[in-house]
Amino acid sequence: MKFVVQNMMKALRWILAMMAVAALCCACGDSDTDGVPEPAPAVYYWRTTLALDSTERAFLAEHNIKKVYLRYFDVAVGADGKIAPNATLRFADSLPPAIEVIPTVFITENCLRYDLDEFAPRIVRRVTTMTDANRVNAARELHLDCDWTERSLDDYYAFLKAVRAQLPEGYRLSATIRLHQLAMAPPPVDYGVLMVYNTGDLTDHSCPNPILDERDVVPYVKRLADYRLPLCAAYPNFGWNLLFDGTTFKAILYGEDLADSTVYYRLDPTRHLVIQSRDIYIARGAETVHLNAGDSVLSRLPAPDAIVKIHDMLAKRRPAINSQVIIYSLDSKNINNYNSKHYEKIYRP
């Protein structure tokens, strides 16, 4: 009997020990810092018309992209002072059926000054209607993008709660997180997408890479491990052509053909000199900038190795962050900035 009791005590100690180990293991795997649910290779699509060319379709296939974060519309304060949808996506095409769409809405920060409780149901209804009306293979998720700051944090988080209250049962809510936002409390969403780009000051003539620079990222990395929100990461594949008058920043040039030798003289692969004065359009609307002969255009594109290095650095601090990688953006103009191997290193290291 004593033997039996002793054996039972041994077994009990063993069970307790096992339970303690199990408890320790659970503590290591805190769900707040896990990766995002149902991770898959993904891209952002940020144009105003959904129409894919062959390069874009090939990219989706080649990299086995499963998710597209598709910008549906912006919400902005109009000229009449009212909050309204803007630049609504026109569905001229559809995505391959195997791809899941995450409806995405960009909200300008100045909207947060308004009572957004009123607009939360409108936004949710508009998103679901757009999904249904255009037969989009959409996830039960809404993704919001907003460059909120300390000043607007309370309003934004209240808005997110109002949006969540409007979402149908079982819908996820996710949001973009900029590096500087890691210093603030996480937003009340199911997961965040860390935007690993736009890290530097693009208006600074001496900033060699304002899109992504390791030195700009490092100060934020220490916050990653403790950031209590599931995160995935978005990496850039875009470049910028920045117009400067001397060292004074003038504009980002979108869609300019720097090979046009009547206007630009190539000094080296990253620098062009303006040799012909002219006005050019720099935005979706009709905003123009004047090119003066003598201005310079600096082409900024992150080196592929730099992106990979930062990708790995983040993984060391927070292994699950790369469980899902999103490339910004699906656009043939950007896709060809890097080769296929590079994308694979980021998607599937």
Partner: peptide
């Protein structure tokens, strides 16, 4: 295109 009331598939 930018009306708040985006038409549903049926409405459209």
């Amino acid at each position: 295109p930018d009306a708040w009331n985006y038409p549903t598939a049926e409405e459209k």
